[in-house]
């Protein structure tokens, strides 16, 4: 990242198993994409082009969950050949929706969906960080356009992108929403990193924390508030939407629920 104004940075864009919605977001940054494309040398973006270049890469931006052995092997190779690994979206960062499926349950569902004779390709739905070191995570299901541009521009200028230091609550208040907790609705906004502009809550949907748990978040305090109106089962179900494969979040919830006394 030293030669910040000289050469174009070679960036590889990859997608593993996922919905590709974050790539659609990448396309929808429109004019800004053109401007960025001029400054990056984007290669290996299968969805957008045929141009293929081998590493080394200044960065590999990876969307999706590495579900198959082939994807896991490819991820390891990308790690070896890239200065930075940047996860794009919830699937790559925290296993996202595919992560709802537990490894122990996969066999049963392969048989039900594909039949008994099917030879599965998938192993488990885990985030990139389960296999390699990830330098920065662009969170969200899907990612937010402005966050995407901010991260790419910081990369371009040689900075290490930083995470938002505030929770979704700040942006939710700015959006003028009524607090879901006051309406006895489960909300992970207080423990979740900002950057999403509270878009789900503004639309009337719950916040499941797809932007990841913010540093210094007080999960036990949130659990205490939630338990006033929600059952343990309901809270656990909410946790599994995005945090099912992230033991460090899941275990704190588990412990807090266990410790909760009315």
């Amino acid at each position: 990242m030293q030669n910040r104004f000289s050469k174009k940075l070679k960036i590889a864009i990859y997608d593993f198993t996922d919905c590709e919605g974050c790539e659609v977001k990448l396309v929808s940054i429109k004019e800004r994409l053109v401007h960025l494309a001029d400054r990056f040398n984007i290669v290996n973006w299968r969805l957008g082009q045929e141009k293929i270049k081998d590493g080394p890469y200044a960065a590999a931006i990876i969307e999706g969950t590495p579900v198959t052995q082939d994807e896991i092997d490819l991820l390891r190779e990308l790690r070896e050949k890239s200065k930075l690994i940047i996860s794009l979206g919830a699937c790559a960062s925290i296993a996202g929706i595919p992560g709802i499926m537990n490894k122990s349950e996969r066999k049963k569902w392969y048989a039900k969906i594909y039949g008994a004779n099917y030879k599965p390709k998938g192993i488990d739905a885990l985030p990139l960080s389960a296999y390699v070191k990830v330098n920065h995570m662009i969170h969200g299901c899907p990612v937010d356009e402005d966050e995407l541009v901010r991260t790419l521009e910081e990369l371009l200028s040689g900075k290490t992108p930083r995470y938002r230091r505030y929770s979704v609550c700040l942006e939710c208040k700015l959006a003028g929403n009524q607090c879901r907790l006051l309406h006895k609705k489960i909300c992970f906004g207080p423990i979740t990193q900002g950057g999403c502009k509270a878009i789900c809550i503004s639309g009337g949907s719950p916040c499941y924390g797809c932007f990841g748990v913010r540093e210094e978040a007080n999960i036990p305090a949130l659990v205490k508030i939630l338990r006033r109106f929600a059952s343990e089962k309901e809270i656990n179900n909410h946790v599994t939407m995005f945090f099912n494969q992230i033991p460090e979040y899941k275990n704190v919830f588990k412990q807090a629920l266990k410790n909760y006394k009315k």
Binding site: F16, T17, T65, P66, V67, T68, D70, E71, I97, P98, I100, M101, E105, R106, K108, W109, Y110, K112, I113, Y114, P120, K121, G122, A125, S205, N237, M241
Partner: peptide, 22 residues
Amino acid sequence: LEGERLFEGILVGKTLEEMHWI
């Protein structure tokens, strides 16, 4: 060659309000 996500399995145990979200 895409990996299987097993959505029909992911949905079982969830509620209808979560279905159109998942």
